[in-house]
Design a protein around this nucleic acid. Structure first.
Lengths: 110, 110
DNA sequence: GCCGAGTACCTCGATTTTCGAGGTATCATA
DNA sequence: TATGATACCTCGAAAATCGAGGTACTCGGC
């Protein structure tokens, strides 16, 4: 139901990194988890998801390994690298700074 | 100093609308105000600013009128239309919903 | 009178990202 | 055996930001 899709720009990576910080997960599962956690406020389309995963893998933030899911299907498990953990920390700090700055503008009442 | 420029995506319009909600201002002044208000955390490049203003004018959210600044220079004053005011309200609500959703993912400690 | 810095406008192309739509295949359930 | 959910992937369109470039005016200092 998210109309604020444009806002996702630049945030998707952070969301994925954070999701993986709880442990390995396969692509589809990552999208599901984010959607569930946010009560469907955030929907990650597969056309956004997979390109994002490749991008992050290429940058060395995450690693992929084929495995078998609980439902007995071949899936690709992604996990955070140490670089990815560092990156998450950085992006988290950026997000905090950014939203604080935006708030100064948006929530000022005079 | 903002490295979080990618995050600006989709937020710039809202920031500009909010800035104009205090009254008319010229383009350069809008960027200055945002930068000052956020203690330089948010820097609006002119290559982002002017295209954004035209976009919003085209959509009917803001209006432009040439005038003379306090410093006696020809400047273009932008002001909010009623459509713009409605749009601001909408975008404010979206931003609130969006950040709330992102927070659910990012700030969960388990 | 000249020069530099700051003000103020504008434009262009490159880059990046998200998204929708399309495609394939498997598994469970009815 | 058909349907729906799971799960992967790819492509091109659309949109936005950014840096770098350009013009021109005003003011203060020398």
């Amino acid at each position: 139901m998210a109309e604020e899709t444009e806002l996702l720009h630049g945030t998707l990576d952070t969301l994925i990194l954070k999701t993986l910080s709880w442990g390995p997960r396969h692509g589809y599962g990552i999208a599901r988890w984010i959607q569930d956690t946010t009560d469907d406020a955030l929907e990650i389309g597969e056309g956004s998801l997979y390109p994002a995963l490749y991008r992050m893998e290429r940058k060395g933030w995450i690693e992929a390994e084929w495995g078998v899911s609980e439902t007995k299907r071949d899936v690709k498990f992604y996990s955070l690298t140490s670089q990815g953990r560092a990156r998450l920390k950085l992006e988290l700090a950026q997000w905090t700074r950014f939203t604080a700055a935006v708030s100064k503008v948006l929530y000022e009442t005079r």
